[in-house]
């Protein structure tokens, strides 16, 4: 085991201990009460049908409330397709 591998082991142990400790310190799974429920989600659940007309709350969030997010996602997909076609253009012959 050389020095670089030892540093990697130390880093892995620190991150692993951090993650496991955080997992034990989280609030219990599925336990939302009045105080720690996010207001944004409550608003969206209450007003989805009146504001967007959609029955599906997730689609309403994706395409209406957070449309910019979807725009960036579409840009990422477009860039990936362009990159894959660009990479394989030279290999194809």
């Amino acid at each position: 085991m050389n020095k670089r591998n030892f540093a990697a082991v130390i880093f892995f142990a620190i991150v692993g201990a951090f993650l496991l400790f955080t997992a034990l310190m989280m609030h219990p799974f599925g336990n939302f009460n009045e105080e720690n429920t996010p207001e944004m989600d409550e608003y969206i659940i209450d007003n989805t049908q009146n504001e967007t007309g959609a029955d599906n709350g997730v689609t309403a969030v994706v395409f209406d409330y957070r449309g910019f997010d979807t725009l960036g996602e579409a840009t990422v997909l477009f860039t990936a397709v362009a990159g894959v076609i660009l990479v394989f253009r030279r290999l194809k012959k």
């Binding site: 429920t37 989600d41 989805t48 997730v58 969030v61 997010d69």
Partner: peptide, 12 residues
């Protein structure tokens, strides 16, 4: 209902 915003983020 469960919270809709994390579902949308997961889809993205």
């Amino acid at each position: 209902m469960s919270l809709p915003v994390p579902h949308a983020l997961t889809l993205t």
